[in-house]
């Protein structure tokens, strides 16, 4: 799985183990922003286990720093989305420049995170 060119269809069909094998973070969400999957990379770098974030609203309960027009509101703009941007996360409270990829398809939406 490649950060730059993985598609929504690839992610929709990926098994949990395939997602856990990715060398970047994957947050899978329903269209209302609830976390439905959270891969090992994301868990390792945020310090939050999958069980702690599943079912929570990603933009308000997990990563409120993304609850703005640059990230969360992009998902509301249309039926599909594929946009990359530079961002700063505080992974385990260490400010870290990351690259985000925002993806949205018919069934789910994804936030990909790469250092």
């Amino acid at each position: 799985m490649n950060f730059a060119n993985v598609s929504v269809a690839d992610l929709d069909s990926a098994s949990t183990s395939a997602m856990n094998g990715a060398a970047f973070g994957i947050v899978k969400m329903s269209h209302d922003g609830k976390v439905t999957d959270y891969n090992d990379w994301q868990s390792k770098f945020t310090g939050m286990s999958k069980s702690a974030v599943i079912g929570k609203h990603f933009f308000s309960q997990v990563a409120p720093c993304t609850n703005n027009f640059m990230v969360s509101q992009k998902y509301d703009a249309g039926a599909t989305l594929d946009e990359s941007l530079d961002y700063t996360f505080t992974l385990k409270m260490a400010p870290t420049p990351v690259k985000l990829r925002l993806l949205k398809g018919a069934n789910s939406q994804y936030l990909l995170c790469n250092k």
Binding site: A63, C65, N68, Y87, T88, T90, M93
Partner: peptide
């Protein structure tokens, strides 16, 4: 150390 709210300030 910094928390996400600081990152949000920087990102804004």
């Amino acid at each position: 150390m910094a928390n996400p709210r600081l990152a949000q300030v920087f990102n804004r």
